[in-house]
């Protein structure tokens, strides 16, 4: 159990080590609010899809396994999409496009095929949760860095997610445009990967 958690959060982190799911990672990490929204959605979908795929792992053979896995992931993504529109309509207006793209997030099919289709239910669910958490925390850090440097704010629009009053912190009047644009996402991710390697090196 411990090694599953360590794998998902650090040693085999989907965003920093496996470099999976880059499309949503780079596209929505503009602000903390959008990062948190998409990160939590991905976490839930990944946990549930791992659970169900592990549950039915005995039923499927080689030829049909992958399409069925994708179908299950797509089902959960669509469910999440409907629920977002149901409960967080304004947030959905901002990240809606990328919610559908969770289906193509390779982390999901990757975990389904590499872990859930060959491990018991409890371990698979836990693996999905930890991988999702690893993805979520990298996404939120990127969102925070890019929002502070790019816009000079932190937690803007977070009230769309929490329903609480606006808690935007204004750090500066303006920011570096580059950090809001796609190159800023690549730069931030590169720095985070480098940081992880430095920490790993120091520990070793």
């Amino acid at each position: 159990m411990n090694s599953i958690a360590r794998d998902g959060l650090w040693t085999n982190n989907p965003a920093l080590v496996q470099l999976l799911g880059l499309c949503p990672l780079l596209a929505v990490s503009n602000t903390v609010a959008t990062s948190l929204g998409l990160g939590i959605t991905t976490l839930l979908v990944l946990t549930l899809s791992n659970l169900v795929i592990s549950l039915i792992r005995g039923l499927l053979d080689e030829e049909t396994r992958l399409p069925v896995q994708i179908m299950i992931i797509a089902t959960f993504v669509t469910l999440a999409d409907l629920l977002l529109q149901y409960a967080f309509f304004e947030l959905h207006q901002r990240i809606g496009l990328f919610v559908a793209l969770i289906v193509t997030n390779c982390t999901l099919l990757g975990r389904a095929e590499a872990f859930a289709s060959r491990n018991p239910i409890l371990a698979s669910t836990y693996d999905g949760f930890m991988m999702g958490l690893g993805f979520l925390f990298v996404l939120v850090i990127m969102g925070a860095v890019r929002e502070i440097l790019g816009q000079g704010t932190l937690f803007s629009n977070l009230h769309l997610l929490t329903g609480l009053p606006d808690v935007t912190i204004h750090v500066a009047d303006s920011g570096f445009l580059l950090m809001v644009l796609p190159p800023g996402a690549f730069l931030t991710l590169g720095c985070l990967i480098a940081l992880k390697n430095v920490i790993d090196g120091a520990v070793r």
């Binding site: 039915i56 049909t64 399409p67 069925v68 179908m71 669509t78 149901y86």
Partner: peptide
């Protein structure tokens, strides 16, 4: 061979249809 996948697909479709009916009004 396709019976099990087909049944799974059917349950996915039913689940989504049900959820759509439940949430459509509020959306």
């Amino acid at each position: 061979k396709l019976l099990k996948p087909a049944l799974l697909a059917l349950s996915c479709a039913l689940l989504l249809a049900g959820m759509n009916l439940q949430t459509r009004g509020v959306i």
